[in-house]
C-alpha cells in the first residue's frame, strides 16, 4: 500500500522579479515500511520535496496524497494535526526546544496530543524508553545546549518516533554528525523501520548511508532523474 503518492507536483518560488522552479513535475509513490533515500546535488529540490511530503509546504501544482488522501486542499489546522499524528520530522539543524530538557523535548508531541488517552506517566515512560534506545539514558535531564550535535540529533529522532508515526522524514539527518555517530543513528532508524514498519524518507549527500536504503530516488533540477 502506498503511504505517499505525488503526481506531477510542481513548486515555484518567486525570487525578486524571477521565479525559481524548485520542482518541475515530480511523481512518486512510497510504500509502507519503505526506507527511501532521496539523493541529488545541492539545489536539486530534495528539501522542497521533503517539505511538500511533510505538509509543511504547499505544492504550486499537482497532487499529494498521504495514506491515499489528498492533502493539498487541507486547512492549516488539518495539516498540523496530520503532521502531529502521522509524520515525524528530523531536521538538519534546528530541531529542539531550547528551554526543555531532552526528555521534555521528546514528550512534547505526546503532550500536544495528550487528550487522546495517554497519562503523564505513560508519556514519560515512552519518552525515556526511546531516549534509552538512542543511547541518551544519562542525558535525559540535560538541556539542548548541554548536548553535543549528535546527541541533539538523537533526541530529535526520539521525538520524531515517540508518536509512532507512519512516516518519518529526515532532511540530511547525518549532515552535522561525525561518521561514527551518523552510522549509529542510521542503524537505529533502520532497526525501527524493520520493527515498527515505519516508512522512512530521508535526503542525503552521503553515498555511504545509501546502503541502508531499500530504495533511492534521484532528483536533479526539480525532476526525478530515474
Amino acid at each position: 500500500m502506498n503511504v505517499i503518492e505525488l503526481e506531477n507536483v510542481k513548486k515555484d518560488y518567486p525570487l525578486g522579479a524571477t521565479t525559481v522552479h524548485a520542482l518541475r513535475g515530480v511523481s512518486l509513490a512510497i510504500k509502507e515500511g519503505d526506507f527511501i533515500s532521496i539523493v541529488g546535488p545541492s539545489g536539486s529540490g530534495k528539501t522542497t520535496l521533503l517539505n511538500i511530503i511533510g505538509c509543511i509546504d504547499n505544492a504550486t501544482e499537482g497532487s499529494v496524497k498521504i495514506h491515499g488522501k489528498e492533502v493539498t486542499t487541507h486547512s492549516d489546522r488539518r495539516l498540523t494535526d496530520l503532521r502531529l499524528h502521522t509524520i515525524g520530522f528530523i531536521f538538519q539543524t534546528f530541531n529542539l526546544i531550547p528551554v526543555l530538557s531532552a526528555r521534555e523535548n521528546v514528550e512534547f508531541p505526546l503532550l500536544l496530543m495528550k487528550k487522546e488517552n495517554l497519562t503523564n506517566k505513560e508519556i514519560r515512560r515512552r519518552a525515556e524508553k526511546l531516549l534509552e534506545e538512542v543511547g541518551l539514558k544519562e542525558q535525559m535531564s540535560q538541556k539542548p545546549f548541554e548536548l553535543s550535535g549528535g546527541q541533539r540529533q538523537r533526541v530529535a529522532i526520539a521525538r520524531a518516533l515517540v508518536t509512532k508515526p507512519a512516516i518519518v522524514l529526515a532532511d540530511e539527518p547525518t549532515a552535522n554528525l561525525d561518521s561514527e555517530t551518523g552510522e549509529m543513528i542510521l542503524k537505529q532508524m533502520k532497526e525501527l523501520n524493520l520493527l515498527e514498519k515505519t516508512t522512512f524518507v530521508f535526503s542525503t549527500h552521503d553515498p555511504d548511508i545509501l546502503k541502508y536504503a531499500n530504495g533511492v530516488l534521484k532528483i536533479k533540477d526539480g525532476l526525478m532523474a530515474s
Binding site: G54, T80, H85, F91, F94, I97, P98, L112, R159, T163
Partner: peptide, 16 residues
C-alpha cells in the same frame, strides 16, 4: 522564528 516554526512542524497548532 526557528523555535515557533519547529513547534508548528511537529504538530503545535496556532492556538498553542
Amino acid at each position: 522564528t526557528e523555535e515557533f516554526g519547529m513547534m508548528r512542524a511537529v504538530g503545535a497548532r496556532k492556538g498553542f
